[in-house]
Write a protein that binds this DNA or RNA. Structure first.
Lengths: 196, 196
DNA sequence: GTCTATACTCAGATAGAC
DNA sequence: GTCTATCTGAGTATAGAC
């Protein structure tokens, strides 16, 4: 199973396939992208694609695991670096906004794709690791009296719902300004909803 | 063009096709639903489907127009019935929560489906009529000094972002409680984010 | 208006030489 | 590991009888 090793290794072709697929999946959608499309854009043969991945679905899955893995890692780092719910949550929003600008495709793939449609046995995005960590930060904040007392899922949704919606708008091309430019204002509103 | 009349008329088969398609599109996804699937579930022949609709995409489009039309109507009624931004926005959230419980498929189809993937020349959902009306309520609220001064899209996103996210969670099956049961708490948080 | 049968296209995936 | 060629099935849509 050396070839599925997520590390750096020698396999730049595998990486190239993944990155190309990400671009196509997000711009045209998963179902409007054929394996032939990927093959053509990467500039290799179909056989090569199928050598690296068992199926089209496997490409989607690998992509999803990579991206949510990276994001969960970032969340964990934030939890380690900051201590208060205020600082942690703000850092998360800043991270989401920056990622949206630097890797819109990655963000879109994680947030927007209806993974259930092509990865039937995957849990919904909002139950994935990164989102779980976000809820955890909020729970701790409530326990410490830093946030108002609400059921954690309500508090988490209230604080992150606005910012996440902002990301959707930006990805949809509705906003002209980059998100980091409005971070302060958005965060003010988000924090006011449940902060003490 | 009598047959495309959206009124009541004689065409219950057309309606039946639409409702069946809605169920299938939302449970399996648009691309995982073939016209044969619809045909079988409705219990009519393929020819009949194609007599009523030019193509599969046309079914999706008719559905989308119907549903967003209904919702825009509801928003307009709310604007007529209430005068303050506070009462209007709260009524909108209550409406969204109720609709999610009474017609989850309709809600899911409007919010969750990536319409761009199968209706290439449609604007993103967030630019559709209902969402425009929501932004309008907020803009007026700011003008009247009822809401804090933020760019309207930020204020609108802050106030509706949490509640809408709640709808997503509920549709994803993550929440056990029906949304109307938590309306008060969710609304408190939403309003606090930008209300004065 | 509704049906059956079928044409046509293209997807995902495999075989087997190099 | 990479390639070309090909299989197989499914999906959209149409033709034409009733």
């Amino acid at each position: 199973m050396k070839k599925t090793d997520p590390g750096e290794g020698g396999n730049e072709r595998r990486e190239l396939i993944l990155m190309t697929a990400l671009g196509l999946f997000t711009s045209r959608g998963y179902f409007n992208t054929s394996v032939h499309d990927i093959q053509k854009e990467v500039g290799v043969s179909i056989g090569s694609i199928y050598h690296h991945f068992k199926s089209k679905e496997a490409i989607a899955k690998a992509l999803y695991d990579n991206l949510t893995g990276n994001m969960a890692e970032a969340m964990a780092e934030i939890m380690a670096e900051y201590r208060t719910a205020h600082d942690r949550c703000r850092a998360v929003v800043a991270y989401l906004f920056n990622l949206t600008e630097s890797s819109p495709a990655a963000m879109q793939y994680m947030l927007y794709a209806k993974h259930r449609e092509f990865m039937p046995d995957e849990k919904p995005v909002c139950s994935s690791r990164p989102f779980e960590l976000m809820k955890e930060m909020v729970s701790e904040g409530i326990a410490r009296g830093e946030l108002r007392e609400y059921p954690p899922y309500i508090a988490a949704t209230s604080i992150f719902g606005g910012p996440i919606r902002m990301v959707y708008l930006r990805l949809d091309g509705v906003l002209d300004d980059p998100l980091p430019a409005i971070l302060d204002q958005v965060w003010e509103c988000a924090w006011r909803s449940v902060g003490r």
